[in-house]
Design a protein around this nucleic acid. Structure first.
Lengths: 188, 188
DNA sequence: TCCTTCATGAGAGTTGACTCTCACGAAGAG
DNA sequence: CTCTTCGTGAGAGTCAACTCTCATGAAGGA
């Protein structure tokens, strides 16, 4: 009974290793790294995306903890900018895994719907102190605006299509998030 | 010699048909629809993404033409909102092809770099009348902001992750584009 | 007319994402 | 100390993205 848990963690850990090393992540490569047969990997996780999802789960600190450095600020612009940086840096640290996840889910929206809500947790946490300064509709709209910008797809658009460097891309997206937040709160 | 041209257009046209019908687009399905062997399809186009790229080429009207309805407006917010809607509606009309293209290029940034610049053409055209109201750096920043929002990835983020309907997603992205443009031009 | 060039098809092969079946070996149950 | 259950591995099979080779048939040139 411990066997199952051990196998499972071995597979998940293999994903972490591969992601950290930046290697391409495929079921065969993960299985090999985990010293498990591919069949076994599929027994534990129905598909690659699900595996990546679960491997990703738990890698992220609680939004409140992640935003600790701006805990004493109530300025939503400042907080949101920081939250964006946290998320995007996290994406960069696991780029190969995130790319594999997006590639695998883009043609299957049902699977994509289960994608982790890191961005939503961070956005909500960043906005929380100032949320009551917005009417519900405006807040919902801002969250949607930010969901588009504070995400891996936005980052890859900036690097792959706009040709920005990784850090420049993060900086650009952070700026966009700040702009949107500022606009929503009526800043100038 | 006309033979090659005919084969090529047959393949491209097959892509258009499949995209219009919303069917899944794969090399085998395109080849079958074009009454061509898969080998021949690969002779004309090195890979699926390239084929989709070329098939997409020429489907879009000139940005100036596409923005004709707002030709007499110099309000960048108005123009950019319209441009965003044009682009996103176009994406929706070819969703299966666009998804296949993104899925195929997300794991190969080199290929993605060749993706069409519809968004850039539209953004520039929309901003043109007011471009001189911004300093070069500010304009470049705005273009990057908009490139993230006015794109298929943004649309799919809204539908697949946020759960919005297709039209709501377009509307949301249009709003975001307007907000960013307004913020850049100092509107309120 | 003969011959070369050329467009194409057929088919095999590779890799990754999966699915399924079969059988082995270890561990717990009686 | 058997018997069953369970976790696994091996291997075959499908489909898509490609890559390569070989053969055929049609078109154009000499």
């Amino acid at each position: 009974m411990n066997q199952k848990a051990r196998t499972r963690t071995a597979i998940v850990r293999a994903v972490h290793e591969l992601a950290r090393s930046g290697a391409e992540i495929t079921m065969p490569s993960v299985a090999k790294a985990a010293l498990v047969s591919e069949a076994t990997a599929y027994r534990y996780f129905p598909d690659l995306v699900t595996l990546l999802l679960e491997a990703d789960d738990g890698t992220w600190p609680d939004p409140a903890v992640a935003l600790a450095p701006v805990a004493d600020s109530t300025d939503p612009v400042e907080r949101m900018g920081f939250a964006a940086k946290v998320l995007l840096d996290g994406v960069l640290a696991n780029e190969s895994a995130v790319r594999a996840m997006i590639a695998g889910s883009i043609t299957r929206p049902e699977v994509a719907a289960r994608r982790p809500g890191h961005r939503f947790g961070l956005i909500d946490a960043a906005l929380a102190p100032a949320a009551d300064r917005l009417d519900p509709a405006g807040l919902a709209r801002l969250r949607r605006d930010l969901a588009v910008v504070v995400g891996a797809e936005a980052l890859f658009t900036l690097t792959d299509l706009c040709g920005l460097g990784r850090q420049d891309a993060v900086e650009s997206a952070v700026h966009t998030a700040r702009t949107l937040t500022g606009a929503a709160f009526g800043d100038r």
